[in-house]
Design a protein around this nucleic acid. Structure first.
Lengths: 340, 340
DNA sequence: CTTGGCACTCTGTCCGTGCGAGTGCCAGCT
DNA sequence: AGCTGGCACTCGCACGGACAGAGTGCCAAG
């Protein structure tokens, strides 16, 4: 019907206006700024219906309308076209990310870039260890009974663990151990590393058996843990911008939730490089995020997500723009990491 | 003189009251809450003098007095005794930091601990590379003409760099290169690494000469840079507490300055493990910090500072408590890192 | 040098008013 | 049937005056 269509058009106009002005929008202003071809009175009727359906609401009896979470959801799902990035933005991405010297640097630049493009808080996850493969395992003896184990993954992460041995270790055994570990785990994804241990123990010469067992278990226990997923956060200063307006209580619980990385990592759990995921307001399970929206996407090749990245901001945000920025940055980062 | 002494006592009382209540403090309240042995009228006279000397000021004509930066400075220098940490606090430090699996983990726990103890923003610097010594250098060939160089320091930091070689590298040469690098740089502080290069090049066999030169220069260029100093920041949620009261404009510039790690690193430049450094308000060169105070100290052994840590908060803060917390945490972290 | 008294100043708050924005509804028009 | 203009109504908010309270500076007396 023509009616329904226009009503959706009204909702789109409300979202757009409200996002850009931060004022509840009334029927008159709507008729002036968008050529919907109808009078304010008609718009009022549409608004009444939209309100009844739960897409918009009014803060006070005599104020304009504001989109609800449900309204934003409809907007994101059906009313927004992907906004192409400007040339300046594309250039900014390249300029920002080129010249990074290592993974830490790449992700640090990424988070600053995202924060700057979207003017929101940006979060970037390190490539998950479990989905990474072992490129090299280095073993360094740091004391008679203590080894330092350094894991280098194909995604560029470097992790270290101290391994204590109950008995002193013969320095001669270290190179041997290194060779053994690398031939067993080299190229193996960490998630599959557990399967290799029995074979490794079988082939281990007797004098190394105990050591290999100790090292393997440390490897599995501490490195395959999902708790080892890391996060970089940036642009928190953006929260201080319209804070009082966008976050009723205070930004405090939100900042606390962000520092509590687990919360964000859980949200990141579902990312996938092909689709941008948007969680709006109450859709976020965590209480501190109920007045915030989370836009995220996976990065990496399409077959294999290395990790996720995204932004967190008020529900009143520029969804098309932010979704485009998040997606573009993720693609570029994915390429960059695939090269190295 | 007895006069001067009592006047200082009045200043101390003002600072203490103001810090705990966040209200400008008047002569009457002061006389009630501290037994200074004199009447409000006398206190008023003292306050007039203190104001003339620039230690306190009144926000409005008819409000109580508030300490100035100069007043806090005097308080910190002469009027405050070191506040011993409570048993619960000491226990919290141990509980928090024990069980850390690597450097990253230690520093992450440290920053959360400090933020929690002081209820301020905490900053912790990674051990500076330039003052660290090489424990091990690992070389991994990742492509025909590309090496991955992994540096492990005695302070537990692990850094990686990709080195591109103009010509393909013989895989046989890699172990040789590794041995050469480790014997040249092993145990050497990075700040002195430059001096070892000529000797290294002299002893390098001809077929490795080019490679050794390339690797050495990458090492020096990218790893000895002070820009390689890193920072962990936590507890920013604490800024949202009394923000409007304590930071006139907004917390935004402060958050921006914190994310701009350079600013904080510059402040950290002067730390030393034996004395707690306090910078109050305008004493901080950077504009965004002029309404903030910075309390910092070095960690590491007394001969050798590995890095610095500290807190940033409003000038209206509990200096004795925060100084004690910062110092205690630094000592514990220093011990922890010395062990490993 | 300290103290009690006193007049003065200023801020924050409360309350009443008026204004403007926006709505819902209704009758008339296409 | 749907759209439109008109109109009465409801609120929130900004403005302004009155008021109480806190705090001060000064002065004269102890």
């Amino acid at each position: 019907m023509a009616h329904d269509e226009r009503r959706l058009e009204v909702l789109r106009a409300i979202v757009q206006d409200y996002v850009s002005t931060n004022d509840p929008v009334g029927s008159k202003a709507l008729a002036e700024r968008h050529d919907l071809g109808v009078s304010p009175a008609t718009i009022r009727n549409d608004m009444a219906v939209l309100e009844e359906q739960g897409y918009i609401t009014q803060p006070h009896t005599s104020a304009g309308r504001v989109p609800t979470d449900k309204g934003y959801r409809l907007f994101v799902d059906r009313l927004s076209a992907v906004k192409p990035l400007s040339v300046a933005e594309r250039r900014a991405i390249e300029r920002f990310l080129d010249g990074a010297v290592d993974l830490h640097d790449v992700l640090g630049r990424t988070v600053r870039l995202l924060a700057q493009l979207t003017r929101q808080v940006a979060v970037v996850q390190y490539p998950t260890l479990s989905r990474s493969a072992v490129r090299h395992l280095e073993v360094v003896q740091v004391a008679a009974g203590r080894l330092l184990l350094v894991l280098i993954t194909d995604t560029g992460r470097v992790e270290q663990r101290v391994v204590d041995s109950p008995v002193d270790i013969d320095p001669e055994a270290v190179p041997e151990l290194r060779t053994l570990l690398n031939s067993a785990f080299g190229g193996v994804k960490l998630v599959d590393a557990g399967d290799k241990v029995p074979g490794l123990l079988e082939t281990a010469p007797p004098h190394l058996y105990g050591l290999v067992a100790t090292v393997s278990s440390t490897l599995l226990e501490t490195l395959v843990e999902p708790s080892e997923d890391r996060l970089v956060i940036g642009g928190t200063a953006n929260l201080a911008r319209g804070s009082a307006l966008d976050f009723p209580g205070s930004v405090r619980p939100l900042l606390e939730a962000l520092e509590e990385q687990v919360v964000v990592l859980r949200l990141m759990g579902e990312v996938d490089p092909t689709t941008v995921l948007v969680r709006i307001g109450e859709e976020n399970a965590h209480e501190a995020l109920t007045s915030a929206s989370f836009v995220s996407v996976g990065y990496g090749s399409s077959e294999r997500a290395l990790g996720g990245l995204g932004i967190v901001g008020p529900t009143r945000m520029d969804y098309p723009g932010n979704m485009a920025a998040v997606r573009a940055v993720a693609r570029y980062v994915g390429q960059l990491l695939a090269e190295s």
